[in-house]
């Protein structure tokens, strides 16, 4: 999928999937994935070198994606299904008994596209660093991407990995922070301010880029730039400015929709704002 208007249609359909999944399960996290639909679309339909129909955990020769903030699972599952890892009909099973689509991503049920469990925060970047080292040892040219939350930056383990990657010159790694300024208890600035995040990552030795995460053109440009910065001795970090809950006006820009499902009325309202573009599951 190369046409940008097609990508935008896909992002809208993914948002619709997210709200339908969370509504269907009456459980889950709509806000985060709504803000990351452009990123998921750009990665899975344009940027990643991957083979959805032939998934292997090892992913040799492919680019790998890790979701450290696992509660964005609804958005990731939509991207995986729509790019061909599994049938979109399975999205209906999200968070239900006997499903491969667990509340938070897991490998236990064998869902294609997932390489490690996540949800307990702060662990994904370490795993991504390990996978990037494995690629280097295997002379594998694939890149490793890892999405984190901004609230997740409060976890100490993030900074252990932040220190490690530049020290070991892991330059086949692109970290992305969903910088929406919201977390469960409220604004990140109120809960535990992150200070100058850009300066912090730069001080740790990362090549830091900024991206407007809800503008598809900018997402494609900056992801392209990040790729071009790989192989130069430093890991790359993208501060991705997003609007949590983007695309549904009453979910937008607030922590209120971090982890709650819409009721019937709210669901209809959301659906009227997110038109079916490429066919519902």
């Amino acid at each position: 999928m190369t046409d940008i208007s097609q990508l935008k249609l896909m992002a809208t359909q993914m948002r619709r999937d997210v709200v339908r999944m969370v509504y269907g399960a009456q459980s889950g996290h709509p806000g985060g994935p709504l803000g990351c639909a452009e990123l998921f679309t750009a990665l899975y339909f344009k940027v990643l070198n991957h083979s959805p129909e032939n998934f292997s955990i090892d992913g040799k020769g492919e680019d790998l994606f890790f979701l450290s903030n696992g509660h964005l699972s609804a958005g990731w599952y939509s991207a995986l299904a729509r790019s061909g890892y599994f049938d979109t009909a399975e999205l209906e099973t999200f968070r239900r008994i006997d499903s491969r689509l667990q509340g938070h991503p897991a490998t236990e049920e064998g869902l294609p596209g997932i390489r490690v469990a996540s949800g307990s925060l702060g662990q994904g970047l370490s795993v991504a660093c390990g996978a990037a080292l494995s690629k280097k040892l295997n002379n594998d040219p694939g890149l490793v991407y890892c999405l984190m939350g901004d609230g997740e930056q409060q976890e100490g383990q993030i900074w252990e990995a932040a220190m490690f990657a530049p020290a070991k010159k892991i330059d086949n790694l692109i970290g992305i922070i969903d910088y929406n300024g919201q977390q469960i208890d409220g604004a990140v600035d109120d809960v535990m301010p992150l200070g100058n995040l850009k300066a912090k990552w730069e001080a740790f030795g990362w090549n830091v880029l900024e991206m407007q995460g809800n503008e598809m053109e900018d997402v494609l440009t900056v992801l392209g730039k990040a790729r071009s910065f790989c192989g130069q001795g430093k890991p790359v970090l993208i501060l991705m400015h997003t609007d949590m809950g983007h695309g549904v006006d009453f979910m937008s820009g607030t922590h209120e929709w971090h982890g709650k499902p819409p009721n019937d009325e709210q669901f209809e309202q959301a659906m009227s704002q997110l038109k079916e573009t490429l066919g519902d599951y």
């Binding site: 795993v127 390990g130 494995s134």
Partner: peptide, 28 residues
């Protein structure tokens, strides 16, 4: 030396790194 990783006093990171290294077939 290429297969040994000194991670410093950062055990949480070490466990994550080890999990990641298995992806691609390493035995950490």
């Amino acid at each position: 030396p290429n297969r040994f990783f000194q991670v410093g006093i950062a055990e949480a990171n070490m466990m994550g790194l080890a999990a990641g290294l298995t992806i691609g077939g390493k035995i950490p």
